[in-house]
Design a protein around this nucleic acid. Structure first.
Lengths: 179, 179
DNA sequence: CTCAATCCTGACGTGATAACTCGGAATTCA
DNA sequence: TGAATTCCGAGTTATCACGTCAGGATTGAG
């Protein structure tokens, strides 16, 4: 089919919208969910996943490199090859996935997870705003690491039909108990 | 003076680094901290703050528009004019500041705080990855709203444990437990 | 053995936009 | 008046997100 997905603009929000993940994070996550559903059934090809998720296959080819290098997926080459998860879905934290796809979590220069970037900000000694960014980073990190791939790969509990005018999806998850 | 700050590149991390705030968030926050320190001493001019924080004044002129429109600062025009906080620092949550500067918190299209963007994703009905982004958004939101401007404006932060005078906003966030 | 399916690699394109700059008008104080 | 300031709208420019493209390497099936 290759439904010729239209090129997505850089940002949906014109001029607004803070702290968003890029499409690498989005597409890569969806790809991982796809793999989790097929876990145990042998490899599945990129073309199949791209088709099923309506994502550009050449682009996925680039993303999957990061996932493979991180050991999150394994590949088998040749005909009837494809990808499968490197570990069981319950043992893959989404923090790992997104870090592999997007790099270290760093809401600000002075608050990167990557120690290689420590001290890159000359204000480190006297800047107390730093405390804010560290708090945000920590919040994102723990949120991501509290959800595993298995949590996302469960088939939808409700019917696939989105019902009602107010479709505020009330998904239930332990990590979501907080407001 | 006018130290001619070099144009900062779009991103400090070449190709890596997820979910970062832009310089609007960074500069605007520093500007607000500056204002908080002078709170009660009348207006302070943009030029003075730009000079003291080594930030480009023409750029700050743009940022401060958003802060003014959000009611976070008030301006007095004319000679000896300037800006001052619209409220006491203890009553300004950093979430408000960042939202005014950068727009609604939205790690992904389908997880924006702004209800105007609800339903923009056609996968809302059946996509369970949505749950992940909502969790992340909630984590960021509560982290930002748990810190006030007063927490950052302490005169000299010698320690992450800044136990100011009797404040009702005692920042003890579970997400802060991690290093 | 051959062929098709698949992964793998690197280079390239390109539109949007973050991060500014610039010029001037309006307002106020001394 | 003149100097200091905010206010406003319109450029400018390098960078990067988001892809495309071409071709090579590897493997299973017939």
């Amino acid at each position: 089919m290759t439904t010729e997905a239209p090129r997505r603009p850089r940002s949906i929000f014109p001029g607004t919208g803070a702290v968003h993940f890029s499409t690498r994070g989005e597409y890569g996550t969806r790809l991982m969910v796809e793999l989790a559903r097929h876990h145990g059934n042998g490899p599945i090809s990129l073309a199949e996943m791209a088709d099923h998720e309506s994502l550009p296959r050449p682009y996925l080819e680039q993303l999957v490199v990061s996932l493979r290098e991180a050991g999150l997926v394994t590949s088998t080459r040749g005909a009837r090859g494809g990808y499968q998860l490197g570990r069981a879905p319950q043992e893959i934290k989404m923090g790992e996935v997104l870090r592999a796809l997007e790099g270290p979590i760093a809401p600000m220069v002075c608050a990167s997870e990557d120690p290689a970037h420590a001290g890159i900000c000359e204000r480190m000694g006297f800047c107390n705003v730093n405390h804010l960014w560290l708090t945000v980073r920590s919040a994102i990190s723990t949120a991501l690491d509290s959800i595993t791939l298995a949590d996302l790969a469960v088939p939808r509990a409700t019917h696939p039909y989105h019902s009602g005018p107010v479709q505020l999806t009330n998904v239930q998850h332990p990590a979501l108990a907080e407001s």
